[in-house]
């Protein structure tokens, strides 16, 4: 039909001159025309709400979202920062969870990446296997480990029994719950670190390796003094990407221990604490203060790591 109504127009002519004035304006302003919708979305859904969170943190908002609230200055911040009962333990747990999980993920991830570095038969299948934990739905992963770590019927205690170790309480124990959730995080996210580091290894040139080999360096020396220094920028990217998400871990903690990180708050990290304050207890003012502090901690750590990465990249 189009051919009948406009027989003289070729496809390219249509795109060049449908409306010259509009087209010229659009092409001249394409930089902002392309970027503006996404920027507007970010402004409306992220920047404005975040500003409101800052405002809420200075009020005594609680209970119903339709309730009146009044401005109370920095009282929430003072209360939160002097709260040694819930806030500071949550900070400690967040730091411990992230630090320990990240350490294992980077070391194991590097080991796996090195194993996968040189091509071998069946490499494709090993890579598929590695991908499985990290695409699995975290809530489902939490439920899966709840069954495996069940003190009575779980497979974990049975495996321990084979090697002569007595049953452990795992997620149900007051002191074992947090390390168990770290284990789950390590199981799920080590593959992610391994894939990032593998991408880094693959992009390295072979020459420094060869030179070190000719000089008679052992495999360990070559790793320690050649590969690792060259890999540092990638390692820092991996720590940055994984660290941000580890700090914000919520799904597996909430799925395995529920509200408040368990009855004794065993796995209550800052994110779980802030979520609980907001949506289990409706303490919007206090929770906003916790969130702003949490956000500042994340920004601070990121800034430190990025500065480190720039230093490494410039060397």
């Amino acid at each position: 039909m189009a051919a009948v109504t406009s027989p003289t127009r070729s496809p390219s002519a249509r795109s060049t001159s449908p409306d010259p004035a509009w087209s010229r304006w659009a092409n001249g302003h394409r930089k902002w025309l392309f970027a503006a919708p996404a920027m507007l979305f970010v402004a409306v859904l992220i920047v404005i709400p975040l500003t409101w969170t800052i405002y809420l943190s200075l009020t005594d908002a609680e209970g119903s979202v339709r309730a009146e609230s009044s401005f109370i200055g920095f009282k929430n911040y003072v209360d939160v920062l002097s709260d040694t009962d819930r806030f500071w333990p949550a900070v400690l747990r967040t730091v411990a969870f992230t630090g320990i999980a990240l350490l294992f993920e980077v070391v194991l991830g590097m080991a796996i990446a090195l194993l996968l570095w040189r091509p071998f038969r069946g490499q494709r299948w090993v890579r598929v296997a590695i991908l499985m934990p990290l695409v699995a739905t975290p809530v489902a992963v939490g439920m899966m480990w709840r069954l495996i770590f069940d003190p009575n019927i779980g497979m974990a205690n049975q495996v321990l029994g084979w090697v002569g170790i007595g049953p452990q309480p795992w997620l149900a124990g007051r002191s074992t719950a947090l390390p168990t959730t770290m284990f789950i995080d390590i199981w799920q996210w080590t593959p992610m670190v391994a894939l990032i580091l593998l991408a880094g290894l693959t992009s390295l040139s072979d020459e420094p390796q060869e030179a070190a080999r000719i000089d008679g360096a052992s495999a360990w020396q070559r790793f320690r003094h050649v590969t690792l220094p060259l890999m540092m920028p990638t390692v820092i990217v991996a720590i940055l990407l994984r660290g941000i998400d580890a700090l914000k871990t919520f799904d597996i903690l909430y799925a395995t221990k529920g509200r408040g990180g368990g009855s004794f708050h065993e796995v209550e990290t800052l994110n779980v604490y802030a979520y609980g304050l907001s949506f289990d207890y409706n303490e919007y003012g206090v929770s906003s203060a916790v969130l702003i502090i949490f956000f500042l901690i994340i920004i601070g750590l990121m800034w430190a790591l990025t500065a480190r990465r720039k230093k490494e990249a410039n060397r």
Binding site: V65, A274, F279
Partner: peptide, 21 residues
């Protein structure tokens, strides 16, 4: 950087105002 900041912000800090509105 503004768009990518969204990868850093904890989701809960947006959930609270979203829930209000």
């Amino acid at each position: 950087l503004v768009v990518l900041m969204a990868r850093v912000i904890p989701g809960v800090s947006l959930l609270v105002p979203w829930y209000y509105v």
